[in-house]
């Protein structure tokens, strides 16, 4: 599974927390509140974990290697 698919899955999981939290907090359904926290936690863990799995290539497929300098280089 590539980085983009995993990040897409992370986003979907995080967005899924909204209907679950809405249902849980308005109906008093504890399972829905737990599920909302659970999906957001799993979704939120994916990007930092990817960093440490070394699967951290540039997200943008067509990002040009544009001319950039760091502030230090500029000041020099």
């Amino acid at each position: 599974m590539n980085t983009m698919v995993l990040q897409g899955a992370a986003l979907v999981l995080m967005l899924l927390a909204l209907p679950l939290a809405s249902f849980g907090t308005t109906s008093g359904a504890t399972w829905a509140n737990v599920a909302a926290i659970g999906v957001l936690t799993v979704g939120g863990l994916i990007p930092p974990v990817l960093r440490y799995l070394g699967d951290d290539e540039d997200e943008e497929p067509d990002a040009d290697e544009r001319d950039e300098t760091t502030p230090e280089e500029e000041d020099a």
Partner: peptide, 17 residues
């Protein structure tokens, strides 16, 4: 509590949308 945390998550996701 857990319910307040869940409400915050829901509100945050909606604000992000």
């Amino acid at each position: 509590p857990l319910e307040t945390l869940a409400a915050a998550l829901g509100a945050g996701v909606w604000d992000a949308i």
